[in-house]
């Protein structure tokens, strides 16, 4: 009958009047973020970074600037190159995460925040100092080892560089120093005092199957 569907429509809106709103009042309330969220505050572990600039090469927009120099320190200490500049120009960043995907040593992680608004474009560059000092709450995007450890950057504690990789940090340190020649799988599983997980959401040690 004419008008019947219109009455049904009125009933729908009336029903929704009594519902709880689905919107979120942003600054006070927040949507739950998921661990894979690709956010702005990039997490970078200098200890893990070899300065290979894979991230810079793989960035579709070319916004990562890396300058390295040979380090003066001893090679066995795991310092082949010293990072002088590591600028991420987040003004043009589209947070695709390809830099994280490209990083062979799990040194770069996506961050979990989204509130880096600035008043000037010039401020929209993350310099190396900020990367060094920033909170180490990496997103689990493209990092299956963090996901398997059920790490959630939005709840959890910071992740230490020794626990962030998909392989043992000792193995990694040798790798970084270019001493892989005699590397042995058993080598990487030598227990070490400093390797002992101390945090609540500690990450597993030893080689973890990577995504690639």
């Amino acid at each position: 009958m004419y008008g019947l569907q219109m009455v049904r429509g009125l009933l729908v809106t009336l029903k929704n009047l009594t519902r709880k709103p689905f919107t979120v009042q942003y600054p006070e309330e927040r949507l739950p973020q998921h661990p894979r969220f690709r956010g702005e505050e990039f997490v970078w572990y200098e200890e893990r970074c070899t300065g290979c600039a894979s991230c810079a090469k793989y960035c579709p927009l070319g916004i990562i600037k890396i300058v390295t120099s040979p380090s003066g320190t001893a090679v066995p200490q795991g310092d082949k190159y010293r990072l002088e500049v590591f600028d991420i120009e987040i003004a043009r960043c589209m947070f695709c995460g390809l830099c994280v995907e490209a990083c062979p040593y799990d040194a770069l992680f996506m961050g979990s925040g989204f509130e880096q608004g600035r008043y000037s474009r010039r401020d929209l560059v993350i310099p190396i100092q900020q990367l060094r000092e920033s909170d180490k709450r990496p997103s689990t995007w493209f990092r299956p080892q963090l996901e398997e450890a059920k790490y959630n950057p939005h709840l959890g504690q910071p992740v230490d560089w020794k626990q962030a990789g998909r392989e043992s940090w000792r193995w990694h340190q040798r790798e970084k120093a270019g001493l892989r020649l005699d590397s042995h799988p058993a080598d990487s599983n030598v227990p070490d005092e400093t390797e002992k997980p101390t945090q609540a959401n500690a990450l597993p040690e030893g080689p973890v199957q990577g995504a690639r």
Binding site: T13, N16, L17, P21, F22, T23, Q25
Partner: peptide, 13 residues
């Protein structure tokens, strides 16, 4: 406010 609630929003608050 009412329109907001009809539309499952909050409206001015």
């Amino acid at each position: 406010k009412l329109l907001g609630r009809f539309q499952n929003r909050v409206g001015p608050n």
